[in-house]
């Protein structure tokens, strides 16, 4: 029944490359991502500039590579914070039920009825643009699906006989929750989180595009696309290549998520 985890390996390969770009962009970048080159403005893809250059002559390959660090950070932070908050809340309301479940359940409905992006934009607009505030906004809006997943899974697990055995053995509630229920209930949340990382990059890119996330001249894939929009008819490569990179990164996260789902499947 063991089939080779090809999707997982492919996903990890893509993510590994991204991490390598993030850790040591100088090793891979042929040029300084911020250096202007007025002899090669809006140069189309060539051997010298595989992704072409933008209106200031900045090498787009180098800029895409240097953006990996910030986009990887966005992918991780924009899922880690809401994921942790949501999973904790979901675990607690799934276990205790009752009033807490009812109150937080309605709060989840409330948050979920707002269009996601509009709410994030509104919160960032109040807090001010920038990455830190973007994470705050995404956490406030994004914890709901994690909480829902964790809540339903915790409700299933808490009725398992092994939990009854824990109670009969006199284990404390924190011990039951974090040592027994959490490891058995976390799988859907983890798998969703990894898939959501792809969406987080798109979200970060959208906010960057709107000027609410990463601020220029920092290279960020969304910002790169935003830069390219005015030249799309004459120099489509400016938007096209960073866009392709986003797609590939998203693919990496999705494949890893699928692979992780298989890997974490618990044998009974």
């Amino acid at each position: 029944m063991k089939r080779p985890p090809t999707p997982l390996l492919g996903g990890l390969a893509i993510l590994g490359l991204m991490v390598a770009f993030a850790v040591a962009p100088d090793v891979f970048s042929p040029y300084d991502p911020l250096a202007f080159d007025f002899s090669a403005l809006l140069a189309p893809p060539s051997w010298a500039h595989p992704f072409g250059t933008d209106q200031f002559g900045r090498d787009l390959l180098s800029r895409s590579i240097s953006a990996a660090a910030i986009d990887l950070q966005i992918a991780v932070f924009a899922t880690f914070f809401p994921g942790t908050l949501g999973a904790l809340l979901g675990l607690l309301i799934g276990w205790y039920g009752g009033l807490a479940d009812a109150v937080i359940g309605r709060l989840m409905d409330l948050v979920a009825t707002f269009p996601f992006l509009v709410l994030v934009i509104a919160i960032v607009a109040i807090l001010g643009p920038g990455l830190a505030n973007m994470y705050v906004a995404i956490t406030i809006v994004g914890w709901v699906p994690y909480a829902r997943l964790m809540r339903s899974e915790a409700m299933v697990q808490k009725n398992g006989e092994y939990v009854a055995a824990c109670k009969v053995l006199g284990y404390s509630t924190p011990r039951i929750l974090f040592r027994h229920i959490l490891p058995n209930a976390i799988r859907p949340v983890l798998v969703y989180a990894v898939t959501a990382m792809a969406l987080a990059i798109l979200l970060g890119s959208s906010l960057g595009y709107l000027g609410l996330g990463a601020q220029p001249p920092t290279a960020e894939w969304g910002v790169l696309i935003a830069d390219g929009k005015n030249f799309f008819t004459t120099a489509p490569w400016i938007a096209l290549f960073p866009g392709t990179v986003i797609v590939i990164a998203g693919l990496g996260f999705s494949l890893t998520g699928d692979g992780l789902a298989d890997l974490l499947e618990v044998k009974r």
Partner: peptide, 17 residues
């Protein structure tokens, strides 16, 4: 509960996998 313990019906769900 240290003095009074229980053995459960379903050996498949009564152990943390």
């Amino acid at each position: 509960n240290r003095r009074v313990q229980m053995v459960f019906q379903d050996p498949y769900s009564s152990l943390n996998p």
